[in-house]
């Protein structure tokens, strides 16, 4: 069996009496992009920092490609973008990238040049003169340029404009296609939805779900706007929610839609518009419920 890119096993992290990470277990395979979602303070950044060896777990273990997190072997195979990029303000962008490259020990210089161009970064500026988004670009370029086998990205598109977000997504796809594993913590649900094959959701330090994105969408169901008089659809098998609209109803269906369409046959419906549930709705459905005691 191939070695997992990231293997977090029953990890607990306490800060005094506060439990920030509560028995979290999840894994990441090479060539996989996994999203990590959760509200503010849920433990996402803490989990990432544990995976990097910056924090020591209270119990449990973390391995990167089979090596303990924070070990020399693990650090050589990992790249990281912090949630709040803080580097040396008097260095220029170019000097910072030079420094990051020498600290990591292996960087693709040609790819660095390409990324600078794609991200449209003016590397002559000092870091203190950069906007938040440009500082983020420096960190992203520094991380992608390492061609590291595992990329741990904490809200990587924070501060990026939509054009640069697209460049970021392209870079993630390229990295994934090269066999690199990416662990992506983000609030940009649309971004996670498009990039990630799996999503891990965390709340109050606990992992509430890990599932394929498509599976989650199926679980929540598909939504249809029915325009016209469709009668009472609430009793139809598979219909979980009915909402009145000015010109019809909105229904949510889980499972097979056949009973629903059968019920529409012969009705005075003029149009049916369908869409899959978004990750945002999935996310909110988990966090609208009160936490378990």
């Amino acid at each position: 069996m191939a070695t997992r890119a990231l293997d977090i096993n029953d990890m607990v992290k306490d800060f005094g009496t506060t439990r920030a990470v509560d028995h979290v277990s999840l894994s990441l395979e090479p060539g996989e992009v996994v999203g990590f979602l959760g509200p503010n303070g849920a433990g996402k950044s803490t989990t990432l920092r544990l995976a990097l060896g910056l924090l020591r777990p209270t119990s449990g273990s973390v391995h990167v490609l089979g090596f303990p997190a924070g070990s020399d072997e693990a650090r050589a195979r990992v790249a990281y973008v912090a949630g709040d990029v803080s580097l040396w303000p008097q260095l220029t962008g170019e000097d910072t990238l030079t420094l990051l490259a020498s600290l990591h020990g292996s960087t693709d210089g040609a790819y660095t040049t390409e990324l600078i161009e794609r991200f449209e970064l003016d590397t002559r500026k000092r870091l203190r003169a950069y906007s938040k988004g440009n500082r983020q670009k420096v960190a992203l370029i520094g991380a992608f340029a390492t061609r590291a086998e595992v990329l741990l990205l904490d809200e990587p598109t924070s501060g990026l404009d939509p054009l640069m977000e697209r460049v970021f997504r392209e870079c993630v796809v390229e990295a994934r296609d090269r066999g690199q594993a990416i662990f992506l913590s983000s609030h940009m649900l649309s971004e996670v939805e498009h990039l990630c094959s799996r999503v891990a959701m965390v709340r109050d330090g606990k992992l509430v779900n890990v599932a394929d994105v498509t599976e989650l969408q199926t679980r929540i169901g598909v939504e249809f706007d029915v325009i016209g008089d469709a009668g009472d659809l609430s009793t139809i098998t598979g219909v979980t929610h009915v909402e009145e609209l000015p010109d019809g109803v909105r229904v949510r269906i889980t499972g097979s839609p056949v009973p629903f369409f059968a019920a529409l046959a012969g009705s005075k419906v003029t149009a049916v518009h369908g869409r899959e549930a978004s990750l945002e709705e999935i996310f909110l459905s988990y966090y609208d419920e009160p936490a378990a005691p």
Partner: peptide, 14 residues
């Protein structure tokens, strides 16, 4: 404390 060493310590030297 300012967070400048996170990347260095996570991916660089000991």
């Amino acid at each position: 404390v300012k967070g400048r060493l996170d990347v260095a310590f996570a991916t660089g030297p000991r």
